[in-house]
Simulated assay, not measured.
Amino acid sequence: MKKAPIILAAVVLSAFSVTGVALVAVTHHLMDGRIAENQRIAMQSKLESIIPDGQFDNEPLEDLIQVSARDLLGAENTRVYRVRKAGEPTAVILDPVVPDGYAGPIQLLVSVLRDGSVGGVRVLYHHETPGLGDKIEERKSDWVLSFDGKSLSNPTPEGWAVKRDGGEFDQFTGATITPRAIVQAVKNTLIYVQQQGETLFEPAEGVTTAAKGAG
């Protein structure tokens, strides 16, 4: 039996195998890049939605630090996006975790303006019950917008609770645990920012603080 055809067949099969692996690797790389870019765009949109118009000209996604304050922010590490206009601080946006949601942890975005008031709150992810706890999503109800403009003095400390607990924030019919936990998480975020003050804007190595379009 001649060995040449067998060797040729083996070479051809090997070539197809290598080509297939290479194509899969290239496709995977391209898809990873596209997914990452889509995620970046989605996050940028969320950040911009809770910053008042005209209040920034930097790139908050690039101007960020990580802090550790589990007691107030719910996780070992929390991102802080710094918002600036003409180089001056105007707000910070944090992504605290609500550890005690009804169906598990909930991650938020909370912007705190320079005057200590809430610029906006958005939900990044959750596992709450559809039709009940998922009303924390902006697309499901306007409940999350009730935080806009609030601060540690508005309402009073007692007012930072759901109405069932004597506070000013609505709860959902059949779902009190979720809004109760989020109200507390937003309040805790305000407390943290108040405690840290201007230190949240101190320069960090590798952080981009230039205005959009500069250079």
Rank of each mutant, 00 (worst) to 15 (best):
I106F: 02
V123N: 01
D95F: 02
F147K: 04
S141K: 06
K150C: 09
V121M: 05
T90Q: 14
S151L: 01
V92D: 01
R82Y: 09
K85F: 12
S111D: 02
V92T: 07
G87T: 06
V97K: 12
K140H: 13
S111Y: 00
G104H: 13
L94T: 05
G104N: 11
Y81G: 10
I93T: 06
G133I: 07
G101I: 12
D95C: 04
V121W: 05
S117E: 13
N154I: 11
G87W: 03
V110K: 05
G133P: 03
V118A: 03
E88H: 14
G149W: 05
I136G: 02
V118S: 06
I106W: 00
R79M: 15
S153Q: 12
H127N: 15
G149I: 06
K150E: 11
A103N: 14
R84E: 06
V144M: 14
G133E: 04
S151D: 12
G104D: 11
R79Q: 14
S111G: 02
P89V: 11
S153M: 11
Q107F: 02
P99R: 03
G104M: 04
G133N: 09
L113A: 14
D95T: 02
S151W: 03
R79S: 15
L124P: 02
A91N: 05
D115S: 10
K140S: 10
V110C: 07
F147A: 03
P96Y: 07
T90C: 10
G104P: 11
V98E: 09
D100V: 13
H126D: 07
R114L: 15
P130R: 05
A86W: 13
W143Q: 00
P96M: 06
V118H: 05
E137T: 08
I93Q: 03
A103Q: 15
G101E: 01
G120N: 03
T129P: 08
I93C: 06
L109V: 00
Q107A: 11
S153A: 13
V123Y: 04
T129W: 05
V144P: 00
L152Y: 02
H127Q: 15
K150G: 07
R84T: 01
E88T: 11
L108N: 04
V83I: 01
R79A: 15
V144G: 04
Y102K: 07
L109N: 02
A91K: 08
I136A: 04
